[in-house]
Amino acid sequence: MAASGNTRKQPRSYPDVPSRIYLMGTCLVDSFYPEAGMDAIEFFRQQGIEVIFPQAQTCCGQPAWNSGFEDEARAVALTQLAAFEADIPVVVMMGSCTGMMVHEYPVMFANTPHQAQAKALAERTFEFSEFLINVLDVQFENIGHTNSSGAGGDSVQDSVQKVALHTSCSTRRGMGLAAEHMALATRLPDVHVVEPERVTECCGFGGTFAVKQGDISAAMANDKARAMAATGATVITSADCGCLMNIGGTLDKLAEQGECQAIPVAHLASLVKNAMDTSKVVIGRHRSSTEQPGEEGAQ
């Protein structure tokens, strides 16, 4: 999905492990990948982090903003400012929406009465993998299998999934979180991360770009899907559901035409949730709250 165009990575400051967070599901997750949101909620709750899911949240406003309809986008963004009002970290399920809230909201509300509020929200908004790596420093201690995780493992066993990681353009370039994304994927147990050719290249989604310039978008999606298929991955993951929908949908079509195997897609949060079945989750960072988690780990 769309990268903000902020070309210099700004150093961000990260809080201690909070006792409560907001979850911003995003509109795509809401209607098309809700299980990813529930998997994330389940993960946080098991770590003793209370999740608040404002029913008043809708969409970050990006589709209209990127199409040039600034007033329409601003009105929607204002709804999110209200929904995530309290001074609690916001974890966002998609990188492009994170970029919108972190980089674009301060621009969008500059010289308006909401300027300070937008800036404050931007500072406490984090993408899912960014939060797990930089705030929680999450680790998975294998309790089920003996195989070590991650790329570069000496032997890949049957139980190990070959995962093709697609870091969206907004996560990679807009937010500068490619390393965090990769870190989370490689920390997962029983996961072997495979890299497609031209890994940094856009999948062709780009929001309304896929509709307004359908032919170009389709050509890009085809190349990306074929590169994904060539890795022999058993699952494709990302933290941007627009990309997943685009790549997965294209693979479905290619499979229909007998050109390659269909490959299931899953949000990173779902892989994290799966990992909890076989691993003990360890939070590496200091917790800010006096409140300690009750129970931890797998059932």
Partner: peptide, 12 residues
Amino acid sequence: INACSLNGACGE
């Protein structure tokens, strides 16, 4: 100007 996915590769 619509022929752009705003992927940011140019800005980078």
